[in-house]
Write a protein that binds this DNA or RNA. Structure first.
Lengths: 162, 162
DNA sequence: TATTGTTATACTCTATAACTATA
DNA sequence: TATAGTTATAGAGTATAACAATA
């Protein structure tokens, strides 16, 4: 567990702090929960490992070989201009390959390289484990509930895609 | 036109995109859900109204009169240096008052001014309503579930403070 | 020496507009 | 004219370190 979360709890407990109606503002609570989750996650995450944003793109390309860059950007709520840089970083690392299709020479389609596949294999178990550990205050049932709820918010049905 | 909300949905549906195991990474889903919630919220939020970060501080001070700045920063996961600026903005707006207590002249304790109380009264209903509307894809039960789960993640028990 | 808060600054993410090349 | 992607840059949010005042 992360130091930060514990510290906050101790201090707030000692001070007898209340946030009142704020804890019923779901958007704010989502934000605080997400920050807590990320704090805990990155406290465990080794330096030098692939960045989460990069891993997310890598996984998304892996799940959708030949996806166009713009489509990917839209799904992950990243601006096209920023996705350009993200993808270039991954290309520089040799993890994904860019290809201009003949059917539309404006487009760029993406695939994962062999090295990228190795990176996924090496990182995925760790990320899953750290992700679960970062939310270890939840029971398995609650964890599943959270995923179901956040999927619904994101507009993604049950298993897989949309 | 290049990037619109509607376009995103159409494209992903048309492309039959899948994010696979990524949708079981709770931390990532929390992040996407939070971004979605904020996008929806701010699409409805009127220009010129108090900023959410400022309103959050205002509410927190209102719930905890005399709270010290550093404690507040820790609870809301804001750095002290940044809280200094946030609080100054609110002071400049005449919404909160800063006071150095005799018991510890290093500290700064905060209270909400009369004007601040008026601001809260004027903003709170709207924020609650927009917050609920931003998550209108959830049922009331699911909304309550989400709040319970995020409270638990944040380390805050049932109702109110800790 | 440690703590509270401030200042200044750097860094990361995200956003916007102008540009190209294709369609 | 519209679209896919790029470039350059601006902006917000966040992080870090040095500092002053007080404990």
């Amino acid at each position: 567990m992360a130091e930060t979360g514990k510290l906050v709890q101790d201090e707030t407990e000692a001070a007898g702090i209340s946030l009142g109606a704020l804890t019923s503002t779901a958007g704010l609570m989502l934000r605080i929960a997400q920050l807590t989750s990320f704090d805990n996650f990155f406290a465990l995450y080794p330096d030098g490992a692939i960045r989460i944003s990069e891993f997310t793109v890598l996984m998304a390309v892996s799940e959708n070989p030949g996806i166009r860059q713009g489509v990917l950007a839209d799904i992950l709520k990243v601006k096209w201009s920023n996705m350009t840089m993200l993808v270039r970083t991954l290309e520089d690392q040799g993890l994904i390959a860019r290809h201009v299709p003949r059917s539309d020479r404006r487009a760029v389609v993406l695939t994962v390289t062999e090295e990228g596949k190795r990176q996924i294999a090496a990182s995925r178990d760790m990320i899953d484990r750290l992700d679960r550990e970062a939310l270890s205050m939840l029971t398995d049932d609650e964890h599943a509930q959270l995923i179901a709820l956040t999927r619904k918010i994101a507009g993604w049905p049950e298993k897989g895609g949309l």
